[in-house]
Amino acid sequence: MLAAVRYRGRDGRRRRWFVPLLPLLLLLIPILLIACVYFRISPLGGLRGLGRVVWALPGAVFDLDDGETAFSIHLR
């Protein structure tokens, strides 16, 4: 799963990043588990919920084009 982030600044320069989401999620899992324990939420339920969200993410698109600047995130 990959997030393609594109940015175009006022100077017209385009920047593009490809962010693999899986390593980020693996880093976030311990934080999620700590948060679940702190807020007294079932850690298993939290993990399952996060898994569902991540599984459903591909296909999501956010494009913002404001005159000279533009920003977009495409998840695939």
Partner: peptide
């Protein structure tokens, strides 16, 4: 604004 029109496109599964 002065930059031109604003376009937003959001696609949510």
């Amino acid at each position: 604004g002065s930059d031109g029109p604003t376009r937003i496109n959001v696609r949510v599964p």
